[in-house]
Design a protein around this nucleic acid. Structure first.
Lengths: 214, 214
DNA sequence: TTTCACCTTGACCATATGGTCAGGAAGTGA
DNA sequence: TCACTTCCTGACCATATGGTCAAGGTGAAA
């Protein structure tokens, strides 16, 4: 047996099999749920896209709802991570600016997840209502307090922190959720690297000027 | 026959029947499509909500797609009407301010239509792609030119008109599309009249300050 | 009143879909 | 090698859904 057996092993280990298949299924599911909606998505289509027989999906995920729930949880966690730039910032320019950068990057790298989340909320959040009422509410209240703190320190104008947050969410996610519309209005071509930079700069400029931080 | 026969007539005229049934079906469809998505919506549910047998729906609208298309066209036309406040304005304060007011009002009065539109675009605009490429593109280019004109006249800062428009669309529609999330973060209660006023004021304040118009 | 176009609807059908299951393949530790 | 657990999958099923249709009801013009 060659020394590089660990690297070139043809027969995957048990744990790898599970991990890789779940990954493939979740990726396929995220795309299909985003493009067709929960009701329009079919397990067969997800299976085909993941390169697995349909019955195999039900081996890893008991039901369609079960699979869907995992997909929604994923994007939510990604967004929560992005919020870290918010916390350890000295003021709104770094805090909100960094948050906008992070959210815009996610809109570009995870457009499907963003759409699934949007769809879920639009339909009344049937499967993640508890997240909204606990994690999201706590997170929001914390950030509102932080923004209010910046206002009290005179680092920005006295704007309603809540509606400021809504504007940030709406605008940054718009580039993912309405990406198709944006692409159509861009002569049918996806935004280039340069155009994404301009978008980020425009959003930051408008927001930071709007709150009087620059 | 009494003189007020025209008013109290019990037997509706032919044209009324058609108009009223189509209205009832479209209203029910807008709500069901918004809450369940195209794939999740069923003709049976729409029929029940409209108070008609399912077969009757197919008498007025040949297919589910046909009905859906009409619902999407409706909200699009409502939005186009709202854009009139844009045109005959002397500057950005009146023009953009009025547009924000109008779009926010629509988000409150037509949340279902807004969601259907969002869902349609998120899924790649399968049925209204032609609208995006013609009417919306022309409208957008016209408004961009107008905003650029205001910039040239020194009535606002030189911001990218395109990304400004995206921010307006995203933010105003957010109050409809993510209304459930907003309600959850508002202790589970819908925004009051006062809160809607505050929302409109906040958005206008942030945007108009952001573009240096006030 | 008659005629006719328009409206209504229960019953029905073909199809698609989420989910099940039994039997076999394959990795793993002893 | 053996026993055991995990993984794989074709075939199958119950159900839900979009859509059809034929027969009957109902305004309105002549």
């Amino acid at each position: 047996m060659p020394a590089d057996a660990q690297i070139t092993r043809l027969k995957p280990r048990r744990t790898d099999i599970r991990r890789e298949n779940e990954r493939a299924i979740l990726d396929a599911a995220e795309k299909v749920f985003a493009e067709a909606g929960f009701g329009g998505a079919t397990m067969q289509l997800i299976a085909d896209m993941a390169g697995l027989p349909k019955a195999n999906l039900h081996y890893y995920f008991a039901t369609k709802e079960d699979l869907y729930r995992k997909v929604v949880q994923q994007i939510f966690e990604i967004w929560l991570d992005a919020a870290s730039s918010f916390d350890d910032a000295p003021g709104p320019v770094e805090g909100l600016g960094g948050y906008i950068d992070a959210k815009m990057d996610i809109s570009r790298t995870h457009p499907y997840g963003s759409k699934v989340w949007a769809s879920e909320v639009m339909h009344g959040a049937p499967v993640i209502q508890d997240y909204l009422e606990t994690t999201l509410r706590d997170w929001t209240n914390g950030r509102i307090a932080l923004i209010q703190h910046w206002i009290n320190e005179g680092k920005m104008r006295p704007v309603d922190p809540r509606h400021l947050l809504y504007m940030l969410w709406a605008t940054t996610q718009h580039y993912a959720d309405f990406g198709h519309q944006i692409q159509t209005l861009n002569s049918g071509k996806p935004l280039s690297d340069r155009q994404w930079s301009e978008a980020k700069a425009s959003v930051k400029d408008l927001v930071l000027r709007g709150i009087g931080a620059i």
